[in-house]
């Protein structure tokens, strides 16, 4: 709580002032409360999310799994502040982000979210270090860039351009970029989707280690059910609804996962 207020001083305090009652009831770090997302295509209304509720704790490694079109991407978009929900409430670290306007959402993304894309989305024209810098430029309390790059094992390649790196290395850069922002939540969209098996596993390991070492909540979105074994919590999505939420008491280390 206290920390988050330091993080976002410019957001109105009232929005963070959660009533005592609510504070008592709520202990979750992130909470989705009956979130719906309905797209109107002319007369037809399609519900991408038809009422989704779940929580994520601080420092939790969450895997959201589901088939294509199940709604996991919509969850990611809404959770990542890239899209708004049609109905329901979303709380992140006690803040109700479901009411945010575009500008507030940007601020939210800016300070609270780290994003790891399936296709890395590195800026081709910037070196590894500069790609990380691109993110740290705009946040208040970034981690040390060099340390972060070292942490993802790319110290030697800091001066290289993305095109000179392998896919796995590029994804490491993406993770470093997300991490360097010192976010509350690391959102990973199919982080291994474009990688080969071994590299994918290295990346997953990095994510898992990051979660453990930095105490950052990590949400990995994947269609690959094999990855569920490594999550502290596994949320399965189907047809815009939560199919199941499983707490995994003993998540497997990445090394032991086969997919």
């Amino acid at each position: 709580m206290k920390k988050s207020q330091e993080f976002i001083p410019q957001v109105k305090k009232s929005e963070y002032n959660i009533s005592d009652e609510r504070a008592e009831l709520m202990s979750a770090y992130i909470e989705f409360e009956n979130v719906k997302k309905i797209y109107s295509m002319g007369e037809v209304k399609i519900a991408a999310l038809a009422g989704v509720s779940f929580t994520i704790e601080k420092g939790e490694f969450v895997v959201i799994a589901g088939a294509s079109g199940a709604g996991k991407s919509t969850i990611l978009n809404i959770l990542g502040g890239m899209d708004t929900c049609s109905e329901g409430n979303i709380y992140v670290d006690g803040t109700k982000i479901s009411d945010f306007n575009a500008k507030e959402l940007t601020t939210y993304r800016r300070y609270d979210i780290g994003f790891v894309f399936q296709f890395y989305n590195l800026v081709q024209n910037l070196t590894v270090k500069e790609n990380v810098e691109l993110a740290t430029q705009i946040c208040k309390n970034p981690l040390n860039i060099d340390e972060t790059i070292e942490a993802v094992g790319l110290k030697e390649r800091a001066g290289n351009f993305p095109a000179q790196l392998s896919g796995g290395e590029q994804q490491r850069v993406a993770i470093a970029r997300a991490l360097a922002k010192n976010p509350k939540l690391l959102l990973c969209d199919e982080p291994t989707g474009a990688l080969d098996y071994a590299t994918g596993k290295q990346i997953l390991k990095l994510l898992q280690d990051t979660c453990k070492n930095h105490g950052v909540s990590v949400v990995v979105i994947t269609h690959n059910l094999a990855l569920t074994a490594m999550g502290d919590k596994v949320i399965k999505v189907r047809n815009g609804l939560i199919e199941s939420i499983e707490i995994n008491e003993h998540p497997l280390p990445v090394e032991r996962i086969e997919y």
Partner: peptide
């Protein structure tokens, strides 16, 4: 893609 990415990164308009 790059622009969308930096938007996601939290750049204001």
């Amino acid at each position: 893609r790059e622009i969308a990415t930096i938007k996601v990164l939290g750049f204001y308009d």
